[in-house]
Amino acid sequence: MATPVDAAPLLAVEGLRTSFVDEGVALHAVDGLSFSVGRGETLCIVGESGCGKSVSALSVMRLLPPPPACRVEGSVRLDGREILALSEAEMRSIRGNTISMIFQEPMTSLNPVVTIGYQIAEAVRQHEGRSWAEGYARALEMLRLVRIPEAESRLKQYPHQLSGGMRQRVMIAMALACRPKVLLADEPTTALDVTIQAQILELMRELQEETGTAIVLITHDLGVVAEMARRVVVMYAGRKVEEATVDDLFDRPAHPYTVGLMGSIPQLGSSVEEGAARRRLAEIPGIVPSLRAMPSGCAFAPRCPLATERCRAEMPPLEERRPGHRSACWHWERAAEAIHA
């Protein structure tokens, strides 16, 4: 692990496997995922739709339906305590308290019929056994912390009265109200305009400096990753395919999927560097395989320009290829060549 050994990690996920049962068949949305994050650290989980990144977060928060519809196996230790074994009541006292989550669309997690102030105050009351007055005082403090203008009058407003960026701030305020040790943020800025995204990312960084909260940031945007992460986990089809420090990942990616992702995004300022001529983007041909029809061997093989017989037959193990840099690829040394012309 590249984690500096500043004591035990706050959140340690090991061998997480989340399966949904569909017509009697167990489909593994997340398969064998491990990661950990320490105090004051930001870990980014990156991947495209359906790679299992959101399901991983929901599994950690224990927000998925109970068995038999869904099974979560493996180990999730929060500050040393195994939380997959906790009862629902015990979990409720941790959720929103020691570990919080923010989502892409704030309207799905804010209650539309109660005021902003009430929602935050209630969480503080529930988790910390405070009075309403203390709860509202904390709510006001949090709204100021996330730089909501005229915080006092906003307390009495309802979610629909706020703009998208403002709602996202409220959700962050709510998630941080009980000073969680770990914050899971699932595409927290994807629905926002760039100027608002920049504000929210900066806010998350500042709050982290002040509170030391460990952040797991789930995103599909490599720009956000570069800006926020210390370490990065790349997921494909339910599995971790690469993990490295952010600099190492961008400098020397060791998985063809990561290389493909980086090649397929247009770069801001490309016309300034390359002149006015337009070039083609590198494509990753085809689409992500369905959970129902996972290829044997490496799941990326059907889309990979480096794939060989071995890749199609044998799943490559996730191994440390360079210090602190893990990759699940038989041809990791040649990963940089994995660009489709």
Binding site: T195, Q197, A198, L201, G223, V224, A226, E227, Q267
Partner: peptide
Amino acid sequence: SVPLPKPRARRKRVT
């Protein structure tokens, strides 16, 4: 405002 996919280019920006 656009975050760049270049970790070393992290900017202190005017938001």
